[in-house]
């Protein structure tokens, strides 16, 4: 049954893992945001030699389980520490999703904006940087934020490659002290407390931007 003392003693252990969880989420998000944008722009490339392979990779990575991807990279790329692998794999996996978000944002920029940029003879790089992306990204910030929350809740997968994030720590504490109930309940509560306000924030942002 539930024991408050066990819970109190377990809390620091779980919270320590939460630090790793946050670190993985933040760095993974940076990878996803940057790589996703790059992929979105590549998918607008003028030649099929670029767009088709990019699309195949996106489809494949997105349609397969992140847990297997973690395992695969972990055993196939020796010499990297598990946290680095975890951040990279999670970030790349989510980049496939964020690229779709960026793409929708780019598609939503009116054709007239491209035409106006052409009419001003702006170079292509300048069109992207100064005209299209600022408009596209603004609209999709809440959707990107939702993926960050989503990624946050998938960080426990990193425990399968021995990263000592929150659920890994909870699991260990639970097995050593036979306190699974307290350990996993704490982990669930921390997830809820961290993700709920963030998702509320995204929802408000979404409403604000929709106006």
């Amino acid at each position: 049954m539930w024991d408050w003392n066990t819970a109190r003693e377990g809390l620091p252990v779980v919270l320590h893992g939460f630090g790793i969880t946050l670190l993985a989420t933040v760095l993974g998000s940076v990878v996803a945001m940057v790589l996703g944008l790059l992929i979105a722009v590549l998918r607008r490339a003028p030649t099929r030699w670029v767009t088709v392979p990019v699309r195949i990779v996106v489809e494949f990575v997105r349609s397969t389980p992140v847990m297997i991807q973690l395992f695969a990279v972990w055993v196939l790329v020796p010499g990297l520490d598990p946290l680095t692998i975890g951040i990279a794999v999670l970030g790349i996996h989510y980049a496939m999703y964020t690229s779709e978000v960026y793409r929708a944002g780019i598609d939503a920029v009116p054709q007239g904006q491209w035409e106006a940029a052409v009419a001003l003879s702006l170079p292509r790089g300048r069109v992207w940087r100064a005209v299209i992306l600022p408009q596209a990204v603004r609209k999709v910030v809440p959707a990107l934020g939702n993926y960050v929350i989503s990624m946050f809740k998938e960080t426990p997968f990193l425990s399968v490659i021995t990263v000592q994030e929150m659920v890994h720590e909870a699991n260990e504490y639970g097995s050593v002290h036979f306190a699974y109930l307290e350990a996993f309940t704490l982990a669930a509560a921390i997830f809820l407390v961290a993700s709920y306000p963030t998702s509320m924030l995204m929802r408000r942002l979404e409403k604000r931007l929709a106006q």
Binding site: K153, E154, P156, V167, Y180, T185, A187, L192, S195
Partner: peptide, 18 residues
């Protein structure tokens, strides 16, 4: 909000272990 906020991974382990 509860089900979405608490992570599938944790929910599964909670059901299995706790």
């Amino acid at each position: 909000e509860f089900l979405r906020g608490t992570s599938l991974y944790v929910q599964l382990f909670w059901l299995f272990f706790a």
